[in-house]
Design a protein around this nucleic acid. Structure first.
Length: 501
RNA sequence: GGUUUCGUGGCCGAGUGGUUAGGCACAGCUCUGCAAAAGCUGCUACAGCGGUUCGAAUCCGCUCGAAACCUCCA
């Protein structure tokens, strides 16, 4: 609908911005690596999925039919000790591994809704695609890129990289020889592998393993990287448009995915690889062990030593949107406060914009410099999004447009100086960006509660009476008492309003 | 140790070979009984040192500092 806009995105594979050309015009297949559901969702996850949510929304806005696949990993992802993450949680809580997965998958979905992220088109689970993964292992073996050892199957990275020069390591900038030199000697099942860089695509179960399936090689479970390859192939095809995930998945996860897909079918899985950057706290990556961490519920309740107050989900979302998705973003109390105010200001401006009249009676039909400036800023917002989804640029343009809204509202710019159709366009663009593309939503400033409204109306009426009689003592007492109760009274030209602070 | 990225005004954070990003904070003004709120205006920075260039914060080199990855991680 908005075609032809030229969309550019940064492809990790080539290391530069490229013009986006989908395989099938008008359609986009996008796969994003979802969470491993072994614990409460991490705030960093929220940033990644919020970034891809905006990407998804913008693609939709551009008129693409998008199939957005985001998996849930519920098996095969091992801890440092070589234990499955689900199984570990299950033993601790004395429940089934699938109960662990279910508990945290539900929590994850709740959090996605709180952040106003759209649901993906398909959300496949690794445990639901064991046959597909076994088939993929077979394909890899048939093509000679895997080998079996004691019931486990490993991917032969050396042979693969000899047959496909330049492929392994392209995404992460890694060199095989260095991998050999760097590899630690305490890696899992090191003795079974031909080479330290090889990785398991099927693992034979040990007696303590809880989640196991039968396969031609052994009773066991699939390797961690395999589920994404198998499920992306199943739902998007052998080669699809966009594969995304967090920066820290580049190596080894995504590198190995590329190798697996090439090894299984001789084709590259995705044309464009998009990676989001990390969320930092106090300038460092969050880490539970260091105590340098904050989770979403803490952010929303204010219950953390790192912040001074509670922040709403939309304030946090806006905070994320102010930075580009490929930049690290440092969470600070000051930064969050600035974002909270900036978000509120933009929403207030939007409310003012809704009230601007668009009737053309006193419009003289000429194009003013304001018209041109407003249209240019609208174009800036779009160009920002076209340039690798630069939400920061788009927000800046919206803020500048907000200046025009205020000046029109307060009469610094006469109404008849801006064409009615430009105002209409401004209204539509504002709402499109705020709600459809950025995925923000208005947060109830007050409970939808008639009782409170009625009480407030009564109180403010009493104060208005006092003020009419110049009884400043009474009127100020009311104002101060309300402030102490967390309610701010705002005296405006068109009357009094109030807000919970 | 290896690989990579980054270092922007009081704070957050875009961008980029030549034009004020934006937000927050701050200051002035308007409004106002006072204040708050709101609006307008102002606030010209790019780690340091060299080099390329008519011109660099933007390109190159070095130094210093930070972070990520190399091992589970969004």
């Amino acid at each position: 609908m908005k075609q032809p806009r030229v969309l550019k995105l940064y492809n990790s594979l080539s290391g530069k911005k490229e013009i986006f050309n989908p395989i099938t015009p008008g359609y986009v297949g996008m796969y994003v690596c979802g969470p491993t559901v072994y614990s409460d969702v991490h705030l960093g996850n929220c940033r990644t999925f919020t970034s891809f949510d905006v990407i998804y929304r913008y693609l939709l806005h551009l008129g693409y039919r998008v199939r957005y696949v985001r998996n849930i990993t519920d098996v095969g992802h091992l801890t440092d000790d070589g234990e499955d993450r689900m199984a570990k949680g299950a033993k601790v809580a004395q429940i089934e591994p699938m109960e662990v997965a279910q508990r945290y998958a539900v929590g994850f979905h709740d959090m996605m809704r709180i952040f106003n992220n759209l649901a993906p088109s398909i959300e496949p689970r690794a445990t639901g695609h064991i046959p597909e993964q076994i088939e993929m292992v077979q394909d890899i073996l048939e093509r000679g890129y895997g080998y079996e050892r004691n019931g486990s199957v490993y991917f032969n990275v050396i042979k693969f990289s000899q047959d496909h020069p330049g492929v392994y390591g392209q995404l992460s900038g890694r060199v095989i020889d260095e991998l050999m030199a760097e590899s630690r000697d305490n890696l899992k099942n090191q003795d079974e592998k031909n080479h330290p860089a090889d990785f398991a695509i099927w693992m034979k179960a040990r007696p303590q393993d809880l989640m196991v399936w039968k396969s031609p090689w052994s009773t066991g479970f699939p390797g961690w990287h395999l589920e994404c390859s198998a499920m992306s192939t199943k739902y998007l095809g052998k080669t699809f448009d966009i594969h995304g995930g967090g920066n820290d998945l580049k190596f080894p996860h995504h590198e190995n995915e590329v190798a697996q897909s090439n090894g299984a079918c001789g084709c590259s899985p995705a044309n464009y690889w998009l990676h989001t950057n990390m969320l930092l706290l106090n300038g460092k990556k969050m880490s539970k062990s260091d105590g340098n961490t904050i989770n979403p519920p803490q952010l929303f309740s204010g219950d953390s030593e790192h912040i001074s107050k509670a922040y709403s989900p939309m304030a946090v979302r806006f905070f994320m949107l102010q930075a580009h998705y490929r930049s690290t973003l440092d969470i600070t109390d000051d930064g969050l406060q600035a974002a909270e105010k900036g978000f509120k200001k933009l929403m207030d401006t939007y409310a003012l914009l809704q009230k601007l009249p668009v009737d053309a009676r006193d419009f003289d039909g000429s194009e003013s410099e304001h018209d041109r400036a407003i249209l240019a800023l609208i174009e800036d917002a779009y160009e920002g999004m076209d340039d690798d989804f630069n939400t920061a640029i788009a927000i800046a343009a919206l803020n500048e447009l907000g200046g025009y809204v205020n000046k029109l509202t307060h009469g610094q710019i006469p109404h008849n100086d801006v064409a009615p159709w430009v105002i209409e366009r401004l209204k539509s663009v504002f709402s499109t960006f705020l709600f459809d593309i950025f995925g923000l939503r208005e947060e109830a400033a007050r409970e939808d509660n008639g009782t409170v409204d009625n009480l407030m109306n009564l109180i403010l009426e009493l104060r208005a009476n006092a003020r009419a009689q110049k009884d400043w003592t009474s009127s100020d007492k009311i104002r101060d008492a309300l402030a102490a109760a967390g309610i701010q009274v705002k005296d405006g030209k068109e009357g009094v309003s109030w807000e919970k602070v």
